[in-house]
Amino acid sequence: MSERLLSGVLVLLVSATVTFFALRLTPGDPVRAVLGGPTAAPTPETIAMAIAEFGLDRPLYQQYLIHIGRLLQGNFGTSFSQHQPVIDVIAEQIGPTLTLTASAIVVAWILSIASILATTRRNRIVSGIGSAVETVLASLPQFWLALVLLAVFAFGLRWFPAQSNGGISGLVLPSLALALPLAGFLGQVTRESFELSLDQPFILSARTRGLGDWSVRWRHALRHAMLPGISLSAWAVGSLIGNAVLIEIIFSRQGLGRTLYQAVTVQDMPLTIGVTLVVTLIYVVASLIADILFVVVDPRLKGKAT
């Protein structure tokens, strides 16, 4: 666990470093973002004051060291574009993104488990259909799927709102856009482990005790087949938040993804770095939770985890 924590700290440091230099080397004038964007017309005196205030006149390595020092103190700075502390902006936007991510993972697991239990080792046709559906879902681009869901179920059938309204109905289509491809991946990696579990001696023992097929699948085989899916879910957290950029824009949702896109567009360096670090931190925490779930699902891994 200590090694995992150390690697998490290193990941955060690398993320902050790469983001800082990528933004500083990007063509454009960050001073314009500080002073109101490309449409602003500041005076030379105002530009000089802004450069001095934010330390943009210092050598790049000094700016980096000051930046890392502030981050270590928990100071994310002030957003250039929104003119408020970065931590306050993130606090306002993190809730919708975490809700969307969590709902997508839950829906993806429900769909993948239902597919596996219903189709694996039934017969060649049913099993083949289940595997084919998972393959198709895994290959779907999430932004394209979001547009299709929006066109069919929002503009066509009018079952759900086109724009997120903050309620459950506004969460359905964005969650499905993220969850369906993930369900395909989860189904693919879990199906193989599930088939291997069905061949284990403890399954035969359970059947000889008179347990029904569904009971054997649900209570015994599935538990041992979930480990690859749990590992994939930890990776999926970072991927889902990254893909939430387009999903939140398409469905006009508030969230970290949309905020990150807007910050990068106007070269708002403090906000971009702050959001990137928070997303990285969420991924690190998800990996730690996955390690804990490994032990919960299979206690035999406890010695290896420690």
Rank of each mutant, 00 (worst) to 15 (best):
W214D: 09
W214N: 10
W214G: 07
S215I: 09
S215G: 10
S215Q: 15
S215A: 15
S215R: 15
S215P: 01
V216R: 07
V216A: 13
V216P: 07
V216N: 10
V216Q: 08
V216E: 09
V216S: 12
R217K: 15
W218T: 13
W218E: 09
W218C: 10
R219Q: 15
R219T: 14
R219C: 10
H220V: 12
H220A: 11
H220I: 10
A221P: 09
A221E: 08
A221V: 11
L222E: 06
R223C: 13
R223H: 14
R223S: 13
R223E: 13
R223V: 15
H224R: 01
H224F: 02
H224L: 00
H224T: 02
A225S: 14
A225D: 06
M226D: 06
M226W: 10
M226N: 07
M226Y: 11
L227D: 04
L227I: 14
L227Q: 11
P228I: 03
P228R: 02
G229D: 07
G229I: 07
G229W: 05
I230C: 08
I230Q: 04
I230M: 10
S231W: 04
S231G: 15
S231Q: 12
S231A: 15
L232M: 07
L232N: 00
L232H: 01
L232W: 01
L232T: 00
S233M: 08
A234H: 06
A234W: 04
A234N: 08
W235V: 15
W235Y: 15
A236N: 10
A236P: 07
A236H: 09
A236Y: 07
V237W: 02
G238E: 08
G238I: 08
G238R: 05
G238K: 06
S239D: 05
S239V: 08
S239A: 13
L240D: 02
L240E: 03
L240C: 09
I241F: 08
I241N: 03
I241D: 02
I241S: 04
I241M: 15
I241W: 04
I241V: 15
G242D: 11
G242Y: 11
G242P: 10
N243Q: 12
N243D: 09
A244R: 00
A244L: 05
V245K: 01
V245N: 01
V245D: 02
L246A: 14
L246M: 13
L246F: 14
I247R: 01
I247Y: 06
I247Q: 05
I247G: 04
I247H: 05
E248M: 02
I249W: 03
I249C: 00
I249R: 07
I249T: 10
I250T: 01
I250V: 13
I250S: 01
I250F: 05
I250E: 00
I250Y: 02
I250R: 00
F251G: 00
F251Y: 13
F251V: 01
